[in-house]
Design a protein around this nucleic acid. Structure first.
Lengths: 112, 112
DNA sequence: ATCAAGGTACGCTTTACATCATACCTTCAA
DNA sequence: TTGAAGGTATGATGTAAAGCGTACCTTGAT
């Protein structure tokens, strides 16, 4: 599996890129879904029900990864996504809570 | 002074538009400057030292206003900006703190 | 009444981004 | 080893957003 760069260290995360990544409702829904799981949970990238093409999905997960929100781990054939909860919380306390408390039905995700 | 629409109510603020508004470093700097002042402070739109044209400045303040971050008040010839601190805090607790705590390199100055 | 100053609106350019289709690479299972 | 499945890279497209200049409208001076 090619190209796995772009996992910034905790102190390399910038508020700008985090906010930019979270400005997209699709990406927020991914983070919300991940955060709803127990800490350390790995989820298959296709398991979020995003109604976009493969290429677009790759794009969004790349943005999340490069912002530092998720960690992507290769598991044989697939690449799993994991929320970098503790690091995000240390670096920008309260940021995740904001996304979690959003009372907004997911956009772009399979409808309600 | 024309067009003063777009002051959403507190419960009309959406996380999406707030994040989008705050994704821009210029707009974050305005919010940071406002938040550094005592609550209720009104500041002249030109007092932030933004290095953009008048038209662009108007644009950014409009985004901030329509997201619900600031309130714009006409004072004779000028239009003053005021942070909607309490409302933002009630609606999305912790959001402002995130912006405030951002360690921001000076604009136009490289390196630390 | 006139005019400079503060803001906005409009039109335009340029850049960034979300999206897709296609082609390709890797892994695992027939 | 052949092929299906999961991901990525690339290139193209449409749209949104940032930026500017200019023209115009207020307001408060002169």
């Amino acid at each position: 599996m090619p190209d796995q760069e772009g996992h910034p260290d905790e102190d390399e995360m910038t508020l700008g890129s985090l906010l930019q990544a979270l400005a997209d409702p699709l990406r927020r829904s991914v983070i919300r879904a991940l955060a709803a799981e127990p800490d350390g949970t790995e989820r298959h990238c296709t398991s979020f029900g995003l109604t976009v093409s493969k290429a677009t999905r790759t794009h969004h997960f790349r943005v999340l990864r490069e912002a530092g929100l998720i960690r992507q781990v290769d598991r044989g054939n697939s690449r799993m996504a994991q929320l970098r909860r503790a690091e995000i919380e240390r670096r920008f306390p309260g940021l995740l809570a904001l996304v979690l408390n959003e009372r907004q039905p997911a956009a772009g995700v399979t409808a309600e």
